[in-house]
Write a protein that binds this DNA or RNA. Structure first.
Lengths: 338, 338
DNA sequence: CGGCATATTGAAGAACATCAAGTAAAGTGG
DNA sequence: CCACTTTACTTGATGTTCTTCAATATGCCG
């Protein structure tokens, strides 16, 4: 498999060459640009598979580069990662909202950078499935609005009229439904690259669920008109969503069976497994999850959920240290009755 | 609204004219044919909106008429109702399997006939949505196989590889899912004109559920290849199933909430409401339903379901006479906590 | 460091499942 | 068509599971 090419836009020579060397050692082809203007030229010319770009630069800063490249059809879909010294949140937000795919703060260690790059290359593949070139309606993401949300923000609530359908570019979102007593069930946990909020659109119904952000997230909003148009006129899109819907349906059928007849113990165990699949990526099986989330995933009360956690701790399937849960025995939790 | 035209094929003059008169009084236009051969000619010529046809006739019997008309594109979709003296099951089965839409046994009373005709006229409308004329793949029902199933027969079970998707032409079918302890949840109750068994097809998965017939049913089987082809090539079909899927999804989300937090009492009440919507048509709110079905709809044990039924009986919301349930207070059952 | 939110444990009781036993209904074969 | 068998329905008693209310503990934030 051919290794990808990466463009590095960075004014500091030391840093630039350092990164370049690292990437070449990993087998990537690299291009270097010492400022924003040259960076843009080079990007348009070489069409790299990914762009790393500093924010603070003479001539043209990183935001400018991103802005210009997002205006060109050829460079629009190239994964774009910001490099920055300051780790300020507002800063990151601005970059993300402009359409950057990721954000790495200097100083970074090598593996951090390499992992981020690999992730983005993998994902760009996925998104391109939707970005079939052609007429004005052929791109689901053509009129996307990028937004950042903080934890606990509500994206939409039960009863809202859908204005957008959502693509979770980065972060975590829970989709919940409440009964009249105020008790919640988690219908779905969304993580990177999941679509959500499209369920009622086809029926011309208002949202029947609430979408709440679990941790800072970058969300692409797609106008419903675009969505419904593409659904009718673009086979790829309609087939994709048919599959999404039926997959979802099968998942919910399983969940129904679980809620009807499984013990709370089993349901909490399943919730933990599902959570660790989303939270505990790259090796470290640690997660800080509010107990109420676990409870509403298992369809039980908070107290009962906690009791089960205590049991699992006693059985050494998990560990809890300052309310942070560590999965010790994933397989055991997943296995039947136990 | 223009009243529909009906062709009556019947060798007995008295009966024929009797029916004709009745229908004309109801505002229908009628054509009469004294034998099968003439019936076919007339059907092709006049293209009526519905055909009533005797089975036992000289020249060409009812089965023959149906067979011939189903070979012609123009008459294929005309609702076809058999009139017959003998009410034998095997007889009815043969007719239904050939593609008749309904079956009326003589002697019949006037309202019975009129109701059957009206139902069929209403329904033919619905089916035509799928029957867009044109190329060879344009008709979802083009290669349908019509089958009759008796109560308790299994149409497919969990793990089966889908060979068909199903359209329930007449009858009732439950879609259930079992957990390892053998406990069942009803995922869906299908009645006339529902599609089922298409959920896993898009994912190339085997059936994750079991479809069991609740009462004698006529089912149209559509080869999966036809279905998947149409899904890709026919916008009407793909949009229709997108909507079906999302509607289904919303229903299941509600069911999840219910299973998680509603009391058994409420769940059993909901099950009764759902059952009466399907069983208790045209006024008489009576139904003979196995308790196990109610239990698996409510996600509880049979005993508990029965206890709730006894409670409802005591509260005069329902009545039970020789294990037949009559809904006395539909609204009350539907209303919240109570 | 105090105040607020979240997490944890305890105890009491309601809700529900299970087992057991009896009754009514529905097939079945002579 | 009837005795007989089998299946489905119904009720009671008992124990488990889970919720609820209450009290305490811990972590978090300015």
């Amino acid at each position: 498999m051919k290794k990808s090419s990466i463009l590095i836009i960075e004014d500091n020579v030391d840093i630039r060459e350092n990164i370049s060397e690292l990437l070449m050692l990993s087998g990537y082809t690299t291009y270097e640009a010492p400022n924003g203007k040259l960076g843009v030229t080079m990007a348009l010319e070489r069409l790299p598979d990914l762009i790393l770009c500093d924010i603070m630069m003479p001539e043209l800063d990183g935001y400018g580069v991103l802005h210009i490249l997002s205006k060109h059809q050829q460079t629009l879909h190239i994964p774009f990662i910001f490099l920055t010294a300051k780790a300020e949140k507002t800063d990151m937000r601005r970059g993300m909202t402009l359409g950057a795919d990721d954000y790495i703060t200097k100083p970074f260690d090598e593996s951090e950078l390499l992992v981020a790059i690999e992730n983005r290359l993998k994902k760009s593949h996925h998104k391109l499935e939707f970005a079939t070139v052609g007429g004005q309606f052929n791109d689901l993401f053509a009129h996307k609005v990028i937004k950042t949300y903080g934890a606990k923000q509500l994206i939409y609530t039960e009863g809202d009229t859908p204005a957008y359908i959502y693509f979770l570019h980065q972060g975590k979102v829970k989709i919940v439904k409440m009964n009249k007593d105020g008790k919640e069930v988690v219908l779905e946990l969304c993580s990177n690259d999941d679509f959500f909020g499209y369920w009622g659109v086809l029926e011309d119904q208002n949202h029947q669920e609430t979408a709440e952000v679990l941790e800072d997230s970058v969300i692409w909003q797609i106008p419903v008109e675009d969505f419904t148009l593409l659904l009718v006129h673009n086979r790829e899109v309609s087939m994709r969503f048919l599959k999404l819907l039926s997959k979802n349906l099968l998942l919910k059928e399983n969940k129904m069976l679980e809620l009807a007849y499984e013990s709370v113990r089993k349901r909490v165990a399943n919730a933990l497994v599902a959570l660790s699949d989303i939270y505990a990526v790259n090796g470290h099986f640690c997660m800080r999850v509010p107990r109420e989330l676990i409870a509403s995933m298992a369809g039980t009360s908070v107290e009962t959920a906690i009791r089960m956690l205590s049991e699992f701790k006693a059985d050494a399937y998990i560990d809890i240290a300052s309310s942070e849960i560590t999965i010790l025995n994933y397989e055991m939790l997943k296995k039947a009755p136990f």
